Amino acid sequence: MRRRRSPALVALVLVLSACGAGTGGATQVDPADEVRALPRLGAAEVVVEPDGLDYSPTGEVVFPSLFHAGEHLAEPLGEWYLYTAPHEVPGGVVLLVADTLDGPWVEHPGGPVVSASSPPHFDVSHVSSPDVVWHDETSELFLYFHGENSTTRYATSRDGVSFTYGGEAVWNSLGGEEVTESSYARVFEHPDPSSGFRWAMFYMTNSRDDVRRIRLAESIDGRSWVVDEEPVIEPGPGDGGNVSGANLWTWRGQHFVVYHTANGRIMARPVGVDLRPTSGAVVLLDPDQAVDVDRVAAPEPVEDGGVLYLFFEAGDRLDAQIQSVRTAP
């Protein structure tokens, strides 16, 4: 159940600790260490309420992903596209369109743009966790999604509406013999031009020890991926035993991995261009800063016109909606 709270104006301050480098979890940060002030964010707002969607088979949606359609498409349906999906069976990737990041967001008719059954390519119980990235080289939108939880797949599109299946991106055996899930991927341009890779991916693996970690994969073309042997983020003592939903965010020249923990918070941790942590993590968004929920997850930061927006999944995993906060006036 969602709890009713009055959203308050919040000022987020990220403290960069000089300790805690490596793959460990969140660390206690000394306020005397270097402080980097993040922007003041206004009250959270509900962006997508499942009950308001025509396609809502399970009454929940997760994992928002934003695409600036007006920047890349000749005839976009709107300036911005938002992709989300239910997680429970049958899932299905839903597209919503708006002229500004403030909305209103209008569901594209016709049901999901990617479904759980796509013969002859795959037929799974569900598809979910959509993430989109534009390829300038081919003028295509790549959409990554999982289905089943053991496999992250991708499809491509010229218009952001009609998708052609591409294949499997990462799967369990790429991460090692102990891996049992490979899902919740975010793909972005690699921040290190000298790496030899054009693209990078943070994604979640679960293992036989039932611990969810953040892994790194790298790619030249966004289709074939090389998985790094060591996790990027291991859950720490205050993380509830699991971490997931990682994304790359760059703020004032500093790269961060932002992700959520099993105890319902969104964390931020500085990383270098090699996408490895350089210091400890702190809370970026707490459930108290959202509307009526006890959990925030799957952060998707995006900037437009000098304004920072943070879209995120809000609520219990089986009762989630999409919310956002933005830079305060």
Rank of each mutant, 00 (worst) to 15 (best):
R3W: 07
R4A: 13
S6W: 11
S17H: 05
C19G: 11
T23D: 15
G25R: 04
T27R: 13
T27Y: 05
D33T: 12
G42V: 08
E45V: 06
D51W: 00
G52W: 01
T58C: 12
A69I: 00
E71S: 10
H72A: 04
H72E: 10
G78V: 02
A85F: 03
E88P: 00
V89P: 00
P90K: 09
V93F: 08
V97R: 10
T100F: 03
T100A: 02
G103P: 03
W105K: 04
E107K: 03
P112H: 04
V113D: 04
S118R: 09
P119W: 02
V124Q: 13
S125P: 08
H126K: 08
H126V: 06
S128T: 09
S129R: 10
F142G: 02
Y144S: 07
F145E: 05
E148G: 07
T156L: 01
G160T: 02
F163K: 02
G167Y: 01
V170I: 15
T180I: 15
E181G: 05
S182G: 11
S183Y: 14
G196F: 07
R198Y: 02
R198C: 08
M201P: 09
S207Y: 04
E218F: 05
S224G: 13
W225D: 07
E229M: 08
E229G: 05
P231A: 09
I233N: 08
V243P: 03
Q254F: 02
A268T: 13
L275K: 07
L284Q: 08
D288G: 10
D292T: 06
V296R: 06
V296K: 07
A297E: 12
A297P: 01
E300D: 12
V307R: 14
Y309E: 13
R317M: 13
T327E: 15
